[in-house]
Design a protein around this nucleic acid. Structure first.
Length: 349
DNA sequence: GAGGCGTGGGG
DNA sequence: TCCCCAAGCCT
């Protein structure tokens, strides 16, 4: 790997000592976090970690409150209807997480007596728990030493060591560096402290190096190049796809469908649409022949493409789920279809 | 290992 | 407006 002159910014153990001292005074208070002398609840730790994957703290808070109120234990969640969980997840994104959430809860309830395993390797085997989440739950819920690397830790470590190899290619190097500063004690606090530092001080842009507890040991800060790290590989451009969403009304209800279990928006409720292609598909894929009238266009950016979705409305009949229009908010539509529904209701069918 | 997979907020 | 990014996982 390529590092600056100083391979270990601080003497062994100094990073974690300085960071934990900072954390003791500056830890964020979050709904899923145990208090100073409180035991962590593995269910809440796990649930929060799944929700927080690629998702901001602000977005997660209301969903975490709703889930823990409705399903206070992993066994309650395991017994829930799958459709209820999917609907409760609507709007949070990455819906495979919700499918894996249910699968994981059922494995824990059926095979582990309702208790999450307390070792990283066993956690890693559960649905939806990858390298990061297994390490995070092991450390935060069970106090196990684990190398916990998320995007925050990547940024902090890349800057501390001025790692100039581009990510994600240099992931193994980064794990080795993170391992080198991970303490044996207070594993959960250390992991959360690294993430708090990354979220509040060692931010992607305009990092607050002046008040950083690790400044003296930071190779990037020392040379005034903090924002140059982490180095990342170039990204690909997003293609544009076009589609049409069909709002078909019948006696105060609207036609909805449930999307196929896997793939984009898998398992979620939706408006009928045809194919999404580079060219405008027009009325191809309509659920029925009717006097379709235009009702605007909605745009949405997915991870790997942009969607321009024309909305058309009509009255008629077809096979599907007829949902009361006044209760459309409870249908559990993903955001793109919630946008389309709002646009459709702006004109008369 | 590279690509599929959502959404909302901030600069 | 546009671009970047977020407590990643799965295939």
């Amino acid at each position: 790997m390529t590092l600056s002159k100083a391979e270990t910014p601080f003497p062994q153990g100094q990073v974690s000592a300085a960071l934990l001292a900072w954390y003791d005074r500056n830890a964020r208070r979050l709904p899923w976090r145990a208090g100073p002398d409180e035991a962590a609840d593995p269910y809440r730790v796990w649930l929060s970690e799944i929700m927080l994957q690629q998702t901001t703290v602000a977005a997660v808070k209301p969903y975490f409150a709703a889930f823990t109120t409705r399903w206070p234990t992993v066994e309650a969640l395991a017994a829930a209807e799958e459709s209820a969980v999917m609907a409760a997840w609507a709007g949070l994104g990455y819906y495979a997480r919700a499918r894996n959430l249910i699968a994981c809860a059922r494995v824990v309830a059926a095979d582990h007596g309702g208790h999450f395993p307390d070792e990283e390797a066993a956690l890693r085997a559960l649905p939806g728990l990858g390298r990061y989440t297994a390490a995070a739950v092991a450390a935060i819920a069970f106090g196990r030493r684990a190398v916990v690397v998320d995007a925050n830790v990547e940024r902090v470590v890349a800057r501390l060591f001025a790692l100039s190899d581009p990510l994600p290619g240099a992931r193994d190097s980064l794990y080795a560096l993170a391992d080198s500063i991970t303490p044996d004690m207070r594993a959960g606090d250390f992991a959360q402290a690294m993430m708090d530092l990354g979220a509040t001080i060692c931010t992607p842009r305009n990092p607050a190096c002046a008040i950083c507890p690790l400044r003296d040991g930071c190779a990037a800060a020392r040379t005034g190049t903090t924002e140059a790290f982490p180095v990342k590989a170039a990204k690909k451009a997003k293609p544009v796809r076009r589609g049409t969403a069909f709002w078909l009304e019948r006696d105060g209800t609207v036609l909805l469908v449930r999307r196929p279990a896997k793939g984009l928006l898998g398992g979620m409720m939706a408006l009928p649409t045809g194919e999404w292609t580079a060219a405008d598909p027009g009325l191809a894929g309509a659920p029925t022949e009717a006097q379709w009238r235009p009702a605007g266009t909605v745009s949405h950016i997915f991870t790997h493409f942009a969607l321009e979705l024309a909305v058309v409305v009509a009255r008629g009949d077809a096979e599907g789920i007829w949902w009361p229009i006044e209760r459309i908010e409870q249908a559990g539509l993903p955001t793109i279809f919630a946008k389309a529904a709002a646009s459709a209701q702006s004109v008369d069918p």
